[in-house]
């Protein structure tokens, strides 16, 4: 178990490093820079800005300074103090550097402010998606072929087909205008998270419902279910204790990608509901060529996806005795 975890963590670290270095190089080769604007600053000012953020260095040197706490500056930190920019501690020292777009904030500040909000939104979305999706899936499987099953399946297909911003629009119309019980957008209380998490979770709920239905149908047809019935176990117990445990496996495997999808997919929802989460930084940092923030978000998301996938594997193993983590070696 420990060896498994260590190995997976090492792989995760390698993945993060690979993603980080590729992104770093790609980003600096995209046309247009952080200081391009309709009204450009004078050449002298721009030169100073480039020096302040070390954009005048060769890419390898920028990357080395970005990754590690190596002091490679010719002028030393005092030079950067020229107009008070965070010196770069390096990612290994837990410092993602200063944002190029938001001059009053370090990337650490921006991530620390936004990540809990995105996490809360994603958690709520995924929670209700799981609760509703699994319930609907089970009902569908048990009532296979009935009108209820068909209705649930049509709803699920619609949920998957509709983009979350369309669902968001309908929800806003219904619950903020027609029947104004929830705030139209913004952030500040749990009420602000209801509509966005509903919109964000809807496609996932639909997908989970389909996965559960398929998994349950397969499980319900197994011999050991018949055995359980034959032994006289109440049908409720057969479903919850035996069938569900096997039938839910596809959902568990899906949780990793779903969690990643909720995180990265929240950007549209965050925009529509004006939620100050990480998703908006993900998009805006690329548009603004805010290299530091884009790198910060990329590294954070990569690390999160790695960790979430690992967690899913562990949970799956603990649910299914046939999967033993040690066996993988």
């Amino acid at each position: 178990m420990t060896r498994f975890l260590l190995r997976r963590l090492a792989w995760a670290a390698l993945t993060v490093l690979a993603v980080a270095s590729i992104s770093f190089v790609l980003m600096r080769n995209v046309r247009g820079g952080p200081f391009d604007s309709e009204r450009r600053a004078s050449a002298a000012v721009e030169k100073n800005l480039r020096e302040r953020y070390r954009l005048d260095w060769p890419t390898w040197k920028q990357f080395a300074a970005y990754v590690g706490p190596f002091e490679l500056g010719e002028h030393g930190p005092a030079f950067l103090g020229g107009d008070g920019t965070d010196t770069f501690g390096g990612v290994l020292a837990g410092d993602f550097g200063p944002s190029l777009q938001y001059r009053d904030a370090s990337v650490n500040d921006l991530l620390a402010q936004s990540l809990p909000i995105s996490a809360a939104l994603g958690f709520l979305a995924l929670s209700w998606a799981l609760a509703v999706g699994i319930t609907a899936g089970i009902v569908s499987a048990l009532r296979r072929g009935t009108t209820l099953d068909v209705a649930l399946r049509i709803t699920a297909t619609t949920g998957i087909a509709l983009p979350n911003f369309a669902i968001a629009g309908v929800l806003v119309l219904l619950f903020a205008f027609v029947w104004p019980i929830l705030p139209v957008a913004g952030h500040g209380s749990w009420r602000h998270l209801v509509l966005p998490s509903l919109a964000l979770g809807a496609p996932f709920a639909a997908y989970i419902a389909r996965l559960t239905r398929t998994g349950m149908l397969e499980a319900l047809g197994e011999d050991w279910i018949r055995t359980a019935h034959a032994k006289g176990l109440p049908p409720r117990l057969v479903v919850t204790r035996h069938a569900l445990r096997a039938g839910i496996q596809p959902v568990i495997s899906y949780l990793g990608p779903a969690a990643a999808g909720v995180l990265t997919g929240s950007l549209v929802i965050e925009r529509i509901f004006a939620i100050p989460g990480t998703g908006s930084h993900f998009v805006n940092s690329a548009l603004n060529r805010d290299y530091a923030l884009a790198m910060g978000v990329t590294i954070l998301y990569t690390a999160l996806v790695c960790v979430l996938n690992l967690l899913v594997d562990v949970v799956q193993a603990s649910l299914d005795p046939r999967i033993a983590l040690e066996d993988e070696s």
Binding site: P116, A120, F123, L193, L311, A317, S318
Partner: peptide
Amino acid sequence: SARLLRRFGLVLVPAVLIAAAGVSL
């Protein structure tokens, strides 16, 4: 360890997320 994980992992993950939600609000 798998059983331990089953017991705590399933509780811990949502707990962390709920805490995050709490912090965010």
